[in-house]
């Protein structure tokens, strides 16, 4: 596992892990009614290198700090892009930030998606809801190195058409001949002409070579559980399925104890896990 899910060693000072680096909001845009994306940059333009799947602890002055995965292009280390659903005190305050406001950043933390392991393989990405955000850096990476991969498939499920993230980008990707993009909604509204139903319904229809396919899955825990079942039905091996876990996180450095998932700390040992290493845990309730 160490060879495929290595963390990069830069960013935070390891002996001062509580000290954030300060970034400025360069751009903030609305994605959906409850979701927004902001671009963060340092004043010296140095930015911060990261790998697809990693997250940062984002602090706003006097309000608090939350773990948010990076949703931008790993090639552009100058700009940190985060896509955030405004559901709590900190994230609702973040939505009010304006260009030029400061955000404290600690990170990047966590083990990334196995984009190296996936070379020469077909890749199926299955995302549910905001789970598309931590997978977008993978998509950027795969498309930037398109020749190194076989088929690339994205299955994305949102609750309603209004919940679809990165809609324009999805439409652009969908127009490509070398990227199979399928979007579905749980409930159709208005003029929606696309798929209706849970995201797992798309998997039986996909074409890929099951023995040469890497799956990367991120979404609500229940969605990931059923996605794994569908992928196993399609003869993917447990070793080739990767999931991103979610737990309460207060520190990002394995010190606060909140993100434990069995013997694992989601912040340090995850958030990306190989399913074969964690299958027992994913099957237990309230673990």
């Amino acid at each position: 596992m160490a060879t495929t899910l290595e963390k990069i060693k830069e960013g935070l000072d390891r002996s001062q892990p509580w000290m954030p680096n300060l970034f400025r909001v360069e751009r903030i845009r609305k994605e959906t009614y409850d979701t927004f994306t902001f671009d963060l940059e340092t004043s010296d333009g140095a930015g911060c290198a990261f790998q697809p799947g990693q997250f940062n602890m984002l602090y706003i002055y006097g309000v608090g700090e939350v773990p948010i995965s990076i949703s931008g292009d790993p090639k552009n280390s100058r700009t940190l892009v985060h896509t955030i659903r405004a559901v709590g005190t900190v994230t609702k305050n973040m939505r009010q930030l304006k260009r030029g406001d400061l955000v404290g950043v600690r990170g990047p933390f966590g083990r990334p998606w196995p984009v190296e392991d996936a070379k020469g393989h077909d890749v199926i990405i299955v995302a549910g809801g905001i789970g598309l955000a931590p997978l977008r850096p993978v998509i950027y990476h795969l498309l930037a190195h398109r020749e190194q991969y076989g088929k690339i498939i994205l299955h994305y499920g949102a609750r309603t058409p209004d919940d679809i993230l990165f809609r324009q980008e999805l439409e652009t990707w969908r127009a490509r001949f070398d990227f199979d993009v399928q979007v579905t909604v749980d409930r159709s509204t208005g003029s929606w002409q696309g798929n209706v139903g849970v995201v797992t319904l798309l998997i039986p229809k996909a074409t890929f070579d099951p023995l040469q396919t890497i799956a990367m899955v991120c979404g609500p825990e229940i969605m990931m559980r059923f996605t794994v079942l569908e992928l196993l039905k399609r003869d993917l091996t447990e070793e080739n399925i990767f999931l991103s876990g979610e737990r309460n996180m207060k520190c990002g450095i394995g010190h606060c104890g909140h993100c434990q998932f069995g013997h694992l700390f989601v912040c340090n040992d995850g958030p990306v896990f190989r399913y074969s290493d964690t299958a027992d845990l994913f099957k237990k309730r309230e673990i």
Partner: peptide
């Protein structure tokens, strides 16, 4: 046992914030 939470406080003037 080492579990810990982090809380945020600001003073009355809002000029300093403590974690």
């Amino acid at each position: 046992c080492f579990c810990a939470n982090i809380d945020d406080y600001t003073d009355l003037t809002g000029e300093t914030a403590t974690r």
